[in-house]
Write a protein that binds this DNA or RNA. Structure first.
Lengths: 356, 482
DNA sequence: GGGTTTTGGGG
């Protein structure tokens, strides 16, 4: 009758299993925990990675950032948009959040992708995929989260004590009062909170802080998009433990299992040198060197608007500004940290994708 | 809630403080004093392709994107329009198909573009420039500069129901006839032609094979409230047995109703949905209602059919409504549990009513023992007695309590009592079997046991009419649909 | 222009 229908999206499969396993990452199938090769759809003010179908937010631990800084000193995390990164050590955890404020959540639950260790694949280009959409707006994932909530509510309701009003009672006038509100669970507030899963507590760096580290305090759109922390993500023992075990598991993996690629439709298996259509287009538009002077007409983004400060740029303009700025400087593939200012790369020639 | 003139075009959102409103430059062309007609409207197929002059047009809308953002300061709305001079093209072999002109409206703000909700509405554009684009006549209008638009509902007379860009809307006397004529033509056109020929959309049965986005024409069999922001539309077009799901934001598509035939401008097949069939929308996607009395709507409705409720399909994958409400309550407004149990404390409107339509799911049914769902009721003493150990079924009634919850109360820690007490006859047919001694009537007990199981499953929903009596809500005129 | 923003559940 019904076909197995394998899930093509690595994220959806992972997040779904996280839910069906009651929010316990240790119960998620080990085969799914290999390194993830992802495309960075956006790197600021939200760091969004995709698996070719969906985007989710990536949360970096300070260890992840520290390691990245030491190994890729010339690359800014917040400049990683449009690049490929490999998440070598990661885990998932569920957080109670306010979904009215966190768009990467649903039903006041967010499944976070915690990154403990990652690296950029600076010269890798992925083939075009469908336009990535928010996994938390997916019909089936929403349903899965509803089920997760339902399980908890159902359990609590089962334990709730309520009386069936007798037949005489319901025929007695009730001075305008409405009858029938039955509280379930023992939570203090009004919100239902009788969940059995253990909420994640892994501390991660806010992207804004990372941005400021890289660009300096007044670089411009230093927005703090950290999802209005209800409960500050304090580093707790449990979080560390989970983190460590995750690291251990991934430690021995040297063959860089390409989880995402496994799910890439055969026709569009990532080929290392094949430029992405869209990306190629963008590049050429930007690249078009007039061919006269050494540092000739590389049109500054923003065009006629003549932007002088970055203060009121839109994110889009800002991204272009950064790209253009880097290209003009030459060499640096991705923005260099403003603090550590040695723009090596002697050539000074108009940019090319630097080799890693 | 009245069903008078269908709101053809959603009223434009109130201008926000941010960007300056479009300069109102709809002051008519310098009309010579005494000249009665300042705008001359060109027929779509006769408008000049060479003059380069701005032209004014009227057209019947047969397709439109939702106004969408393309960059920091640009929004676009693209539409297809027809008129008596341009509506059909003969094709060898495949027969005739729709012909049309396209209109591309450019604006600085979302609010300056029209939101098209129905096929057949009329659009008027001032100061558009015509050119050939991909062999199509394309009218371009810079609303951010000096072009303007006005949209008139197909239903109705005069220009009273118009929505328009800018602040200097004008409507000349001579336009009464222009508008009336094109409306009349559209009326006949929609009744005699399909308007959107089959080359302009894809049958749902072929959706999975599409490589990129496509359009759909289908019947909305159900509008299910998935959450506070979202409706899940269930679509069928008769091309296959499947029912397709589309998530549609309530705010973006407030006028989609069950039974409607709609045209979806741009959807994609979702390869990642493995449990159910899903189509994805984009920010530029639009859902347009096809006039119910049109040839196309009638044909699609006839083909689509209804999906029958199948017990085996109550598996949690698709939210399923297990009940049906008596047709006499078709017009009864829906109220959430929040209204029924909380807002009623302060809302006079709700206080003044006692009968409501509402949807919920059941977290628990009491009594836990199905055999105790019925009692022998003594009218005099107003007491019910268990049938346990009793013979016969004297004065049997149902006395069942549902502890329920819904979308509006999904986050709180409450559950709400909704009663199925049939002592006064309310809800007597809910379970499709008369109240009886369930200690002796095994068949009925078994049936109720099955209902109990299905009602309390994840994603099982009850659509019911409830009446408030003495502060309690009682189910009535509702029954399980299988 | 048959399209891809952020307002990041109208855009």
């Amino acid at each position: 009758m019904s076909k197995p229908a394998a899930q093509q999206s690595a994220f959806k499969q992972l997040f779904t299993e996280m839910l069906t396993q009651g929010g316990d990452f240790s119960k998620v199938n080990k085969d799914l925990k290999r390194p993830l090769k992802t495309y960075v759809k956006e790197s600021y003010p939200f760091f969004l990675v995709t698996d070719g179908y969906f985007f989710v937010q990536a949360y970096f631990t300070k260890e992840a950032v520290a390691e990245f800084r030491s190994k890729f000193n010339n690359v800014n995390i917040t400049d990683l948009h449009d690049r490929v990164i490999v998440l070598n050590s990661w885990s998932l955890e569920i957080r109670k959040v306010n979904s009215a404020e966190t768009f990467t959540s649903y039903g006041n639950l967010e499944i976070r992708l915690i990154v403990n260790s990652f690296k950029p694949n600076l010269n890798e280009r992925l083939n075009p995929t469908r336009y990535p959409i928010n996994l938390f707006r997916d019909d089936e994932l929403k349903t899965q989260i509803q089920q997760f909530r339902w399980n908890a509510i159902n359990a609590a309701a089962g334990k709730a004590k309520s009386e069936i009003p007798d037949l005489a009672r319901v025929q007695t006038a009730s001075k305008g009062k409405v009858e029938g509100i039955v509280k379930i669970g023992s939570s203090k507030g009004d919100d239902f909170a009788e969940f059995s899963f253990k909420e994640g507590t892994t501390a991660t760096l806010s992207l804004k802080d990372i941005f400021v580290q890289e660009k300096g305090k007044d670089a411009s759109p230093a927005k703090d998009t950290t999802a209005v922390p209800k409960v500050k993500g304090g580093a707790k023992g449990k979080g560390k433990a989970a983190q460590k075990s995750a690291e251990k598991k991934a430690a021995g993996v040297s063959k860089s299992a390409e989880k995402v690629l496994k799910y890439t439709p055969s026709k569009s298996v990532a080929k290392k040198e094949t430029p992405q259509k869209g990306a190629a287009g963008k590049q050429s538009a930007k690249k078009s060197v007039g061919g006269k002077k050494a540092t000739p007409a590389m049109p500054s983004p923003g065009g006629k608007k003549s932007i002088k400060t970055t203060d009121q740029m839109s994110m889009n303009q800002f991204k272009k500004y950064l790209d253009w700025h880097e290209a003009k400087k030459g060499g640096k593939t991705i923005g260099k940290r403003s603090t550590t200012g040695k723009a090596s790369t002697a050539s000074g020639k108009a940019s090319k994708r630097s080799k890693k | 809630m009245s069903s008078t003139a269908p709101a053809a075009v959603a009223a434009p959102k109130k201008a926000r403080a941010a960007k300056k409103a479009t300069p109102s430059k709809d002051a008519a062309p310098k009309a010579k004093r005494g000249e009665s007609q300042r705008y001359k409207y060109s027929e779509l197929n006769k408008a000049s392709l060479t003059s380069g002059e701005a032209q004014h047009i009227y057209g019947v809308i047969i397709d439109a994107t939702f106004p969408y953002k393309t960059n920091q300061d640009r929004y676009i709305c693209s539409l297809k329009i027809v008129d008596p001079s341009l509506y059909i093209k003969s094709q060898k072999g495949t027969g005739d198909s729709s012909d049309f002109a396209t209109v591309v409206l450019y604006a600085k703000r979302f609010e300056d573009l029209p939101i098209i909700t129905r096929l057949g509405d009329i659009i008027r554009v001032h100061r558009a420039t015509l050119r050939l684009y991909n062999g199509q006549r394309q009218f371009n209008a810079n609303i951010f500069y000096n072009s303007s638009w006005a949209v008139f509902p197909q239903e109705g007379a005069g220009h009273g129901g118009a929505s328009h860009s800018g602040k200097n809307y004008s409507f000349e006397k001579s336009e009464d006839a222009t508008l009336a004529n094109i409306r009349k033509w559209a009326q006949g056109y929609f009744q005699q032609y399909n308007v959107v020929s089959s080359d302009l959309y894809v049958p749902l049965a072929k959706a999975a094979g599409q490589k990129s986005d496509f359009d759909v024409v289908a019947k909305v069999n159900q509008v299910f409230e998935l959450d506070e922001y979202t409706n899940e539309l269930r679509l069928r077009d008769g091309s296959g047995a499947q029912t397709w799901n589309v998530l549609a934001l309530k705010l973006k598509f407030p006028n989609v109703h069950a039974g409607d035939v709609v045209r979806i401008r741009s959807a994609t097949y979702d390869e990642t949905s493995t449990q159910k069939k899903v189509l994805l929308l984009s920010h530029y996607s639009n859902i347009l209602t096809v006039p119910a009395n049109s040839k196309l709507a009638k044909e699609v409705k006839a083909k689509a059919g209804d999906e029958k409720l199948d017990k085996a399909a109550i598996n949690g994958v698709n939210a399923t409504v297990l009940t049906e409400v008596d047709k006499k309550h078709a017009g009864l407004p829906v109220h959430s549990l929040l209204d029924l149990f909380h807002n009623i404390e302060t809302d006079k409107e709700i206080q003044s009513k006692d009968t409501f339509r509402t949807q919920f799911y059941v977290t628990k049914i009491e009594s836990a023992d199905v055999k105790e769902w019925t009692k022998s009721y003594d009218k005099k003493t107003k007491k019910g007695a268990s049938f346990k150990g009793q013979k016969g079924n004297a004065n049997a009634i149902y006395q069942v309590q549902f502890l329920v919850k819904d979308v509006s109360t999904q986050f709180n820690s409450n559950t709400y009592k909704v009663l199925l007490y049939t002592h006064d006859g309310l809800g007597a047919n809910f379970f499709n079997t008369p109240a009886d001694n369930l200690y002796t009537n095994d068949k009925a007990a078994k049936k109720l046991q099955e209902y109990s199981g299905l009602l309390t499953k994840f994603n099982s929903w009850v659509d019911a009419v409830v009446e408030r009596r003495n502060g309690f809500y009682f189910i009535k005129d509702t029954k399980i649909a299988f």
